[in-house]
Nucleic acid binder design. Structure first.
Lengths: 239, 239
DNA sequence: CTAGGAATATAACATATGTGAGTGCGGCCG
DNA sequence: CGGCCGCACTCACATATGTTATATTCCTAG
């Protein structure tokens, strides 16, 4: 199966064969990380970056009273800690939410790519810029949207991102995330997460049983969540 | 006076003379934008990026009920919308909080830099990665810290960032931002911003009169805000 | 097939934060 | 110089959200 990163990048701009080969060849090894284990820890200074091939992971920080905030949800095709290539020290940890299959890319290889493949470099840079755009969207939702809207928006986002890497089945996505984890993502208590999910269900927007989340009313969900997909940069353009 | 971007980047890694010249030559023109005017608007597709030479600006989004969220505060040396080089469409607006002096860099020039100056490219990429790291820190503070801690952290961050571009006077920074704008930054009402500032003042951590914010007790402020400067990447390293 | 643990669901109550209204101060414009 | 306007500040009150506790359902290990 094709590398989900390539799948994802090619929706933003086309890649030459040489660029695709360079990406494939950049992979040094494949790691498996079990659910609930750390993929990278805050404070680490990795010399390789992790590309998530399969599974779900979360970037997170722990604050002093032990509470946790998830700042990103990572899916197949996400370059989980590409930023450690230049930031050097991890400012957060990354946790496997499910069993994760990971390709590692040495920073030395990434450096070579920046020297030899300017366009591919821009595409990798773009990938991290989209991370930033998602962060801004989350900040806005967290600060100024109702909790219901925030949840709706998150669901819309995950649906489109999973779709972009071919991980949907009709209107259903497989979302192996607990309500406690959703709470850490939205900055809420689990009790409140539960209340909000009930509401979206009662209103007929979603079905969410076990790990299967089905979108029942996309238009409504989009409108409740004030969702505008621009920030995901899913347009094909010369970059 | 030297370009504050160069000043800032050189704290992270040294730049060659050729790289500095390339950056200086990249500037196409200087613009002045008055306070309360937009520098770029959401939805714009700029063909140049804006480097803030002087003044304060804010990235923001407006949501449906008219409320506003500020997702970044920009100071001298910040490449306000460098991301538009690759994202193409602005997912947010940028507002001048004070009169701003701005250098514009055409995207075509940036593209040339990525082709000819791999290391400089990495440094510009790094600058956007730090933006992302700041976003993650804000998300964590917003989701899981007390409002007081969040405010304290923001003040610590601004102090260090302003220091990095030589914009402090002893323990004082010039911070021309209203309580309403602080509210839009922290996701709070102005009333609550006021309450929190009172508290930090009463506890003797800061003085904030007019636009002058003085740090009276850095250690305490740092500890209350759970501030760890790692995410600002102020270390000099090979990148 | 059962027992135990994890995750969801629900309730009663506490509290942080928002809302709306109003005061007072200072700076700027006419 | 005087009046106005924006901003800081305060209060009383409403409400969204957290907390603690318990019941219920669902998985999975054995």
């Amino acid at each position: 199966m094709t590398n989900p990163l390539i799948l994802k990048l090619e929706q933003r701009d086309s890649l030459s064969d040489a660029e695709k080969r360079a990406l494939e060849n950049a992979i040094a090894r494949i790691r498996i990380v079990e659910a609930d284990e750390d993929i990278v820890r805050e404070g680490d200074r990795p010399n390789e970056s992790c590309l998530l091939l399969d599974g779900f992971a979360a970037r997170y920080k722990i604050v002093s009273n032990g509470r946790r905030q998830i700042s990103a949800l990572q899916i197949a095709g996400d370059f989980i800690d590409l930023h450690s290539f230049l930031l050097k020290t991890m400012d957060h940890g990354v946790l496997a939410l499910t069993t994760c299959r990971i390709a590692t890319v040495p920073h030395a290889t990434l450096e070579k790519i920046t020297a030899e493949f300017p366009h591919l470099t821009r595409m990798l840079w773009l990938d991290t810029l989209i991370d930033g755009a998602i962060h801004r969207e989350w900040l806005t939702a967290m600060g100024r949207l109702s909790v219901t809207a925030h949840m709706a928006q998150l669901i819309c986002e995950l649906f489109l991102r999973l779709k972009a890497v071919g991980r949907i089945e009709g209107d259903t996505i497989y979302l192996p995330i607990t309500q406690a984890e959703l709470g850490d993502t939205l900055g809420l208590s689990t009790v409140h997460v539960n209340r909000v999910l009930q509401e979206l269900r009662k209103e007929g927007m979603i079905r969410f049983q076990g790990d299967a989340l089905t979108i029942l009313d996309w238009e409504r969900l989009k409108s409740v969540g004030e969702f505008n997909h621009t920030y995901l940069s899913l347009q094909n353009e010369d970059r």
